[in-house]
Each structure stands twice: as structure tokens, then as C-alpha cells.
Design a protein around this nucleic acid. Structure first.
Lengths: 207, 207
DNA sequence: ATTATGATGAGAATATGGTCTCACGTCAAG
DNA sequence: CTTGACGTGAGACCATATTCTCATCATAAT
């Protein structure tokens, strides 16, 4: 027996998570009290399942994230540009359509940096698992024999600048674009970045 | 008479700000109490000058920001690439060297977005004054007659993705690069973006 | 130097986020 | 069906951030 009363526990957990998901959707700030109330659970119990409102919000946001499959890329063919387009148009654009949860994740990781800033190197949580990098790498696979290894690595990193949560924040808050304009810029930025890398690769690179 | 006792007030204000600046430099989390103590001022007084610890920290971070002059750009000559390099190498790289205050500003503006998310359109603070855009626009001025207006606008926005606070966060946290690698990628990303825009401008643009 | 104005300090008061305690009721193994 | 382990609720409790109150003291104008 794992430990009696498994159903009860998963039920409460789901109720809490679901409540948090609803609140996140509404852009509400993290609040254990509010989530607990909505989940018809006492605050004390809520804290037994999630260490803090932040944590709950973060998990709820993750819940609102699409579980993209790497297939989209291969489905786009062998042309790196087309593959990159596919990534940006599916994931990148989706982020622009669903800003809130992604902003939550961005905030969470930023906050974590400050919290752990002064701490010893060990005793740190695996901050972010950069899914983004995998997508970029996968999209650029066909370039393996056209570009030198280090250039590809740099390009993968550079593309991480162009689409993703932070890009959403930049395009919306800094550039003050509406969602449609932001999508256009994001896509063009990705295309330009790739094209530029291909064009400049022979000449100057690095500082 | 503006309102007696002006000196006294500016003195306390400066003391507080200076204390906060020191604490920000050390990466300390916002704390009115700590800043007040360091400034030899009571907490109550501190709150008379700044509405919250967050606000004080934000202003202190702004203080640690370099007051860059647009001159750097013209000094780089007429070549857009060189002008862009100048911007990235001065401002962008500086941000990588002085992460803390910039991260503070990023966090502050992100938090503000959430705080004001549910609010009526009016009653909002002018969130961010995008200095970044001005720099990019200025750097690209020589392109005025080579590229169509809308393309330049898009490029200005796209470049905002490549260098700036959010770019610092991406390169350091998501890509997990050390400062030197991050500098190289940031510079190359900017160069690629420009080159790509020049190369693709005639063919496909926008979605 | 005197004084009225207004800045300040100390600490009480409030709000909020999170922890702890313990009595209660329920689920599941027997 | 019984029963004991275990999840839960209610509220006390603590810590921190911000506000309030009022007495005190410094400063600028006289």
C-alpha cells in the first residue's frame, strides 16, 4: 500500500491546481487564500500541498502551457527557414496569444534568481529547463553540414532571444505592439536572424 | 518660497537613495527597514519619501544605470553595422556587466504589469519609456533611404529583442552562458539581424 | 534670538503571507 | 463493522510590510 487515502489527496491537489489555473487565467496575483477558498479547501491544507502561493501559481501557469511535440518541426520539411517558421508560428505565436501564464513563468524565474542570488552555488534549484534551446537546435538540424558547430550553437542561443517569454514582454511592453504586430515582428526577426547567420557566416563572427 | 526646509528634504531623500543604491549593488532584496537604517533615518520617514520598498529599489536601480549619450553612435561613423556594434558594445555589454540593477528594473516592470492587469485602461502609469527604441532608430538612420519605412520600424523592434534587460536574462538564465559568451552572442545576434534584414528585404517580409 | 511651520522618530496599529497545533471525522485494512 | 492512521478545518501564532499618531525637534522667516 503506497499510503492510504490516495484518491482524497489527488482530489484536493487537483481542486487546488484547477482553482489556481482559473485565477491565473484571470491574471490575478498569487494568493493562497483565494485559491483555497475557490477550491473549497482551508488555507492550512493548501499550504500542505504547495509551499507558497508563488509555487502554486507557477505550477498552474505550467498547466496552461501547451505540451508541444517536436513533430511540428519535421512536418515542416527540410528547409531550415521553414522549420524555424513552424516553431515560431506554433509556439512563439501561442505565447503571444496566451501572455498571462508565460509572464507568470518569466516572473517566477526572475524572482528565483534574486532569491538565490546570494546563496552558495549548491543548494540551488535547477532554475529553468530550456525547452526553447531544444526547439531551436532541432529546427536547425539540417544546417549541421553547412555551418560550423560553434556557429550553430551561437545561432541557437541568438534565436532564444527572438521568440519566448521574454520576447513577448519586449514586444508588448517595450515596443508596445499589439498582438498581431508582435507576431509579425517575431516571425521576421527569426527569419532575419537565420538569414543573417547564413550570410555572414563566412566573414566576421564573434567579437 | 517654494516650501521651507527644502535642503533638509533633499538631504534625506539623497541619503535614502544612496543607501538603497548600496544595497542594490549587493543584490539585497527590497527592504525599506534596511535602507532606512543604513540612511540613519526612521522607517516612517522613509515611507514619506518612497511609497514602497519596491519603488525605492527601482529608483536606486535606475540610479545605477549609465546615462548614455547618443553620441557614441555618430562617433561610429555612417555604416549601420558599425553604429549598431557601437550601441551593443557600449550599452548592451554594460548591461551584462551590471546585471543586478537591470534585472531589478525588469522585475519591477513585469510586476507592474500584473498589478495593473485587471485595472481600467486609464489610471495606469507610463510603464516603460523605451530608451532602447531610440537607440536602435538612431543607429539605423543611415538606412533611411535603403529600406522602406515599415521595414525599418520592424527592424528597430526586432533589435529590441536582441539587446537589453530581457536579452540579458535570456542569455544568462535560459542559455546559461557566462558573461563573455553572452557578449559574443549578443553582438553576433545584432549583426545577423541587421544583415538578414538587408538580405531579405526585397523578398519575403511580414507573414 | 524667537517662533511658527513642518520634518522627524518611536512605537502602536493594521494587513497580509505563512506556520503551527490540535480536535475532528473519514477512509481503508482487518 | 470496527478501528486506527491520516487528511482536514479552525484558529492561534509569528513575521514582515506599511500606515498612523503624536510628541519632539530643526529650520527659515522674522
Amino acid at each position: 500500500m503506497a499510503s492510504g487515502r490516495v484518491n482524497q489527496k489527488t482530489r484536493t491537489r487537483h481542486a487546488l491546481l484547477q482553482a489556481a489555473v482559473d485565477l491565473v487565467r484571470q491574471g490575478k496575483p498569487p494568493s493562497m487564500a483565494e485559491a483555497a477558498e475557490l477550491a473549497l479547501v482551508s488555507a492550512a491544507t493548501a499550504y500542505r500541498y504547495f509551499p507558497s502561493a508563488q509555487a502554486l501559481w507557477e505550477e498552474a501557469s505550467l498547466e496552461l502551457t501547451e505540451p508541444w511535440e517536436l513533430d511540428v518541426i519535421d512536418a515542416a520539411g527540410e528547409d531550415p527557414a521553414a522549420r524555424l517558421d513552424a516553431v515560431v508560428q506554433s509556439i512563439g505565436w501561442h505565447m503571444l496569444d496566451e501572455e498571462v501564464p508565460y509572464r507568470n513563468l518569466a516572473r517566477a524565474s526572475l524572482e528565483r534568481w534574486f532569491r538565490e542570488a546570494g546563496l552558495p552555488e549548491h543548494e540551488r534549484v535547477p532554475v529553468r529547463e530550456a525547452r526553447r534551446m531544444r526547439w531551436n537546435a532541432k529546427a536547425l538540424e539540417p544546417l549541421r553540414d553547412q555551418l560550423p558547430e560553434p556557429t550553430i550553437d551561437q545561432l541557437v542561443n541568438a534565436l532564444a532571444l527572438v521568440w519566448g517569454t521574454e520576447a513577448v514582454v519586449v514586444l508588448r511592453d517595450v515596443c508596445r505592439l499589439d498582438v498581431e504586430e508582435a507576431k509579425r515582428v517575431m516571425l521576421n526577426a527569426a527569419r532575419w536572424m537565420l538569414e543573417g547567420a547564413l550570410a555572414l557566416t563566412s566573414t566576421e563572427v564573434v567579437d
